[in-house]
């Protein structure tokens, strides 16, 4: 880790932040498609907001700003938020948007109340906890970067090892279940992996914005790829680059890092949505007729009445 940090043409503190934010972006970019493709982006948002109470509780337990404990707390309450959403959906029969809306606001307000109570308690060590709202990479030290890299690498390894299972279950949950992959296992694995990505990023990007770093790179990459493997790789690259560039830019311009990182990733997504060669808005507007023709004359369907093609919007 040290050689990577020192080899960058940046002053040491900036280099630490850049590598740390890059690792966070990379992990979030790689794991984001797990949520986005399954239509669970906002589920990630509920978990991300759910980290806030855990951060404060971790601080209270540790007595100081002990990062591993605070992140552990964040992970626990994020998982609790996830369980609450799933519980509301399954047991109470709530629609996902309702369940997420309720849990997200409940978890976040709990976090805010805890933060405020702590701030007014006159505890000297607590200043800076509010950075977990919008993110603050400054003050990141090499040990934090190492922690991020190790935990992130474990998550990426897990995704690589279970890639077939995750892809199959995300694409066709019914088929996967019949083929012997229990739904609860997939749900649990995806939730834990998402929680890891969120918890790693919450300090740098912030509880409020972390979901954007999961979603935006995945959206950008989807526009440019036709296979999941390529999508995950590209999404990780977009996330990592946005993380590094955003953190450095924010530091120099004295802007909050979370919003800058998220703005960069979102810009890439918007550009990809507009200008992607095949799937971009521009490409679609330009050749709707050609697309319909190529579809109806495709092999395997040759000579079939072009009913389907004409049915396309």
């Amino acid at each position: 880790m040290n050689w990577l940090i020192t080899s960058l043409p940046l002053p040491y503190p900036e280099a630490v932040v850049a590598v740390g934010a890059a690792a966070i972006g990379l992990v979030a970019g790689a794991l984001g498609p797990l949520a986005v493709l399954r239509g669970r982006s906002m589920f990630g948002d509920a978990m991300s907001h759910g980290t806030l109470p855990g951060v404060v509780l971790g601080f209270v337990v540790a007595g100081t700003k002990h990062l591993p404990l605070m992140l552990l707390g964040a992970g626990l309450t994020a998982a609790l938020a996830a369980l609450a959403v799933i519980g509301l959906e399954r047991c109470a029969g709530s629609r996902p948007d309702v369940a997420i809306g309720v849990v997200l606001s409940a978890a976040f307000t709990t976090g805010i109340v805890l933060l405020t109570a702590l701030a007014s308690s006159g505890n000297a060590g607590q200043s800076g906890l509010a950075d977990y709202l919008f993110g603050q990479p400054a003050g990141m030290v090499e040990r934090d970067v190492l922690l991020t890299a190790v935990v992130g690498a474990c998550a990426l390894l897990a995704v690589t090892a279970c890639f077939r299972v995750l892809r199959t279950a995300a694409f066709d949950p019914g088929f996967a279940a019949v083929a012997g992959v229990p739904r609860w296992a997939v749900e649990a694995a995806s939730t834990v992996l998402l929680a890891v990505a969120i918890v790693l990023g919450v300090r740098t990007v912030g509880a409020v914005l972390m979901v954007a770093l999961l979603v935006a790179p995945a959206v950008a990459a989807r526009q440019l790829t036709t296979r999941l493997g390529g999508l995950v790789t590209l999404s990780a690259l977009v996330g990592g680059t946005s993380g590094a560039a955003g953190a450095v830019l924010a530091g120099r311009a004295e802007l909050p890092a979370g919003p800058v990182i998220v703005l960069l990733a979102t810009s890439v997504a918007v550009l990809a949505v507009l200008f992607a060669p095949r799937r971009g808005v521009l490409a679609r507007v330009r050749r709707p007729v050609a697309a319909a023709e190529s579809r109806s004359s495709a092999p395997g369907e040759a000579g079939a009445p072009p009913r389907e093609a004409s049915g396309a919007r």
Binding site: L37, G39, F171, D172, P173, R222, T225, T226, L228, G230
Partner: peptide
């Protein structure tokens, strides 16, 4: 029941 717009061949 199959996820729409999934990147797969």
């Amino acid at each position: 029941a199959v996820t729409r717009d999934f990147p797969i061949t």
